[in-house]
Design a protein around this nucleic acid. Structure first.
Length: 139
DNA sequence: CACGGAAGTA
DNA sequence: TACTTCCGTG
């Protein structure tokens, strides 16, 4: 297991310098059968330049991203989950459930634009992390 | 489009 | 639990 202090950053080549810490892209930690989470999938697409025409980080605001092609993102998500009837209406409902979970929030006024709550993602990936003093706690 | 209640799935 | 499906409301 890697140290918690590791904050390696991924910089997209030729990008606007927008990068996100490696802990944010922590695909799946469990060995095997756990189903992929929507936010893992979103981060996965965001991390690959080949999907930049479909979904991309919004320059300026850290953690903010824009779904440039909602139908395509929904199609890709549906393919991954074996849900051929998936569409943006349903996918966006799933994203809205993240509001209360504090994983995402909407960027009001900006169409198809959402923002990751990275501090919450730290908590999701490393439950032992205590946000109050920024040190790992023993249970 | 975006929101969120309500019921259904695995 | 984490969505998926459906839908009325603004």
């Amino acid at each position: 297991m890697r140290g918690l202090g590791c904050r390696r950053v991924r910089s997209p080549a030729g990008g606007a310098g927008l990068a996100f810490p490696d802990w944010a892209y922590k695909a799946e930690s469990s060995p095997g059968s756990r189903q992929i989470q929507l936010w893992h999938f979103i981060l996965e697409l965001l991390q690959k330049e080949e999907f930049r025409h479909v979904i991309a980080w919004q320059q300026g605001e850290y953690g903010e991203f824009v779904i440039k092609d909602p139908d395509e993102v929904a199609r890709l998500w549906g393919r991954r989950k074996s849900k051929p009837q998936m569409n943006y209406d349903k996918l966006s409902r799933a994203l809205r459930y993240y509001y209360n979970k504090r994983i995402l929030h909407k960027t009001k006024g900006k169409r198809f634009t959402y923002k990751f709550n990275f501090s919450k993602l730290i908590f999701v990936n490393y439950p032992m992390w205590d946000m109050r003093d920024g040190r790992a706690q023993k249970s």
